[in-house]
């Protein structure tokens, strides 16, 4: 079954690599957004199965985007996975407390990325 994923990250190269990994390895549909506002629009429009969300972004950071997604009734139910370089335990705890489905740390293993996502979401 094909899933659709929305990747929101301000880094072009990371978007490129993650997109390729999910498409080539996971066979999923991928859309990308380069900033939080763009991401919110796309999430509402396309209702992806999961959103991979970067935390460190200028203007609107991942947490603000997540809260905005939660606030929006259309996007509230979309599971969100943080994709972040913030690896400290305090940060991790904070993310989980927010209610995201999972956290994937950068650097990630591109080949394993789809699996990781599946595991978190309980897909087969």
């Amino acid at each position: 079954m094909t899933h659709s994923i929305l990747i929101i990250d301000d880094e072009y190269d990371i978007r490129a690599v993650a997109e390729l990994a999910l498409r080539a390895v996971g066979g999923w549909q991928v859309t990308t957004a380069s900033c939080g506002s763009e991401g919110l629009v796309k999430a509402e429009q396309e209702s992806p199965d999961v959103i991979l969300l970067d935390v460190m972004m200028p203007d609107m950071d991942g947490i603000a985007v997540f809260q905005a997604l939660q606030a929006n009734s259309i996007t509230r139910s979309i599971p969100v996975i943080f994709l972040t370089a913030k690896v400290q335990a305090t940060d991790q705890r904070r993310f989980r407390e927010l209610g995201v489905k999972g956290v994937i740390t950068k650097p990630f293993k591109a080949m394993k990325l789809p699996n990781q996502v599946s595991q978190i979401l309980g897909w087969t």
């Binding site: 990371i14 390729l20 950068k106």
Partner: peptide, 12 residues
């Protein structure tokens, strides 16, 4: 951040 790109790209 750049490491992520490098590692992911090479991984693929």
């Amino acid at each position: 951040t750049p490491l992520t790109s490098i590692s992911a790209a090479l991984d693929l």
